[in-house]
């Protein structure tokens, strides 16, 4: 679910990676909790145990409720729970998403039933949110090439999802347009190595996807040296138009 690899170069000034350098990369990855009670437990937990320097904020996005923090390398992390899909409002194929204050009083008074005991079973990576150089180019790739739905638009951000979800991948230009592509050189500092999408092992679909990449001259590289490569033989890697590395897993 989360793989951490030590950079070979341990220089302290490697921290604060893509935002300061105005490079494409990870804005945050988002940990999806299975129930609202776990979000409350996590909120109670960080109130006591998380130094404020790691805390970034909280929000109600209508489709979900979120807490934002960053790790010791300033890698952004969202911890969230989804409202029931029956509560999501779709209008002309666009899902209603907002950024409003999180109702912590409601959370703490009505759903304070669990004590935080670590990430519960059923926790997944719900989505990734990326800094990109150009929203239209991002849309051409994530919607046009990968075949994700464009589900929502914020000022400076597009959201994409497979059928029925609010977003699996978001892209934004909040650190500027025409930023540098992701620098995958390990000396570039901490941040995203890659994120992985898992799909059913359907040969026809895999062939179509690979053909899509080939037609657009997007390189497919199944031979990139990677720590977790040995565990996922049925996979390949591509780089999105911003140089962000993605892995496709088929199982």
């Amino acid at each position: 679910m989360i793989i951490l690899t030590q950079l070979k170069n341990k220089l302290a000034d490697l921290k604060y990676p893509s935002i300061v350098k105005r490079e494409a990369g990870l804005y945050h990855f988002a940990i999806l909790l299975p129930e609202r009670e776990y979000l409350v437990a996590f909120l109670q937990h960080i109130k006591v145990n998380l130094d404020q320097q790691y805390y970034e904020g909280m929000a109600d996005h209508a489709v979900s409720e979120s807490i934002y923090i960053h790790d010791s390398d300033h890698i952004g992390i969202e911890i969230y729970r989804d409202r029931s899909p029956s509560e999501w409002i779709w209008n002309n194929n666009i899902v209603h998403m907002v950024t409003e204050p999180l109702d912590t009083i409601d959370l703490l008074t009505k759903h304070n039933t669990k004590t935080w005991n670590g990430m519960p079973l059923g926790t997944t990576i719900g989505h990734v949110h990326l800094h990109v150089s150009n929203l239209n180019r991002a849309k051409k790739f994530y919607n046009g090439t990968l075949g994700l739905y464009h589900t929502a638009t914020y000022p400076g951000a597009y959201f994409f999802a497979a059928d029925g979800y609010h977003h699996h991948i978001a892209t934004n230009t909040w650190i500027g347009t025409n930023i540098l592509p992701a620098n995958n050189n390990e000396q570039n500092g901490p941040g995203l190595d890659h994120y992985a999408i898992v799909l059913p092992n359907n040969n026809a679909d895999i062939r179509k996807l690979r053909n899509n990449f080939a037609n657009l001259r997007i390189g497919i590289d199944g031979n990139i040296a990677d720590a977790d490569r040995q565990y996922h033989d049925n996979s390949f890697y591509v780089y999105d138009p911003n140089g962000i590395k993605m892995q496709f897993l088929f199982c």
Binding site: L11, I125, T145, E186, L192, Y195, L199, D228
Partner: peptide
């Protein structure tokens, strides 16, 4: 091309200092 509706994010791999 329409990606399979069961698509999920499987993992993130992070480089750390």
């Amino acid at each position: 091309f329409v990606i399979d509706s069961s698509m999920k994010i499987n993992h993130v791999h992070l480089k750390v200092s």
